[in-house]
Amino acid sequence: MRLRIPFSLLLYTLVFTACKQEKKEAEIIPEQSQIETISKSPQKVLSPHISTIVIIGDTQIQINYSSPGVRNRMIFGGLLAYDQVWQAGAHMATWIETNNDLIIDDKVLPAGKYGFFTIPSKNEWTVIFNSNWNQHGKDEYNEKDDVLRFKAIPKTSGEIIEHLEYKIIKANEKEGAISLAWERVFVSFNFQLKQ
Results as ranks from 00 to 15, higher is better:
residue 2 R to E: 14
residue 2 R to H: 13
residue 4 R to W: 09
residue 6 P to N: 15
residue 6 P to A: 12
residue 7 F to L: 15
residue 7 F to S: 14
residue 8 S to F: 12
residue 8 S to Y: 11
residue 9 L to I: 04
residue 10 L to H: 08
residue 10 L to A: 07
residue 11 L to G: 12
residue 11 L to Y: 13
residue 14 L to E: 10
residue 19 C to V: 12
residue 20 K to D: 10
residue 22 E to C: 14
residue 24 K to N: 14
residue 26 A to L: 14
residue 31 E to H: 15
residue 31 E to D: 12
residue 32 Q to P: 08
residue 33 S to T: 14
residue 33 S to N: 15
residue 36 E to P: 07
residue 36 E to I: 11
residue 40 K to P: 06
residue 42 P to Q: 08
residue 46 L to S: 05
residue 46 L to M: 07
residue 49 H to C: 08
residue 55 I to T: 15
residue 57 G to Q: 04
residue 60 Q to K: 12
residue 64 N to E: 13
residue 64 N to H: 09
residue 66 S to G: 04
residue 67 S to I: 00
residue 68 P to M: 01
residue 74 M to T: 15
residue 75 I to M: 02
residue 77 G to C: 00
residue 79 L to V: 08
residue 79 L to C: 10
residue 82 Y to G: 04
residue 82 Y to V: 03
residue 85 V to G: 00
residue 86 W to D: 03
residue 89 G to Q: 02
residue 92 M to V: 13
residue 94 T to M: 01
residue 96 I to K: 05
residue 106 D to M: 08
residue 108 V to T: 11
residue 109 L to A: 03
residue 118 T to A: 11
residue 120 P to K: 02
residue 120 P to H: 01
residue 122 K to H: 10
residue 124 E to S: 11
residue 126 T to C: 08
residue 126 T to K: 13
residue 130 N to L: 06
residue 130 N to P: 03
residue 139 D to G: 04
residue 143 E to H: 11
residue 145 D to C: 05
residue 157 S to T: 11
residue 159 E to Y: 15
residue 161 I to T: 07
residue 169 I to L: 10
residue 170 K to C: 04
residue 170 K to L: 11
residue 177 A to T: 13
residue 180 L to R: 02
residue 181 A to H: 07
residue 184 R to T: 12
residue 186 F to D: 06
residue 189 F to D: 00
residue 190 N to F: 11
residue 191 F to R: 05
residue 194 K to I: 10
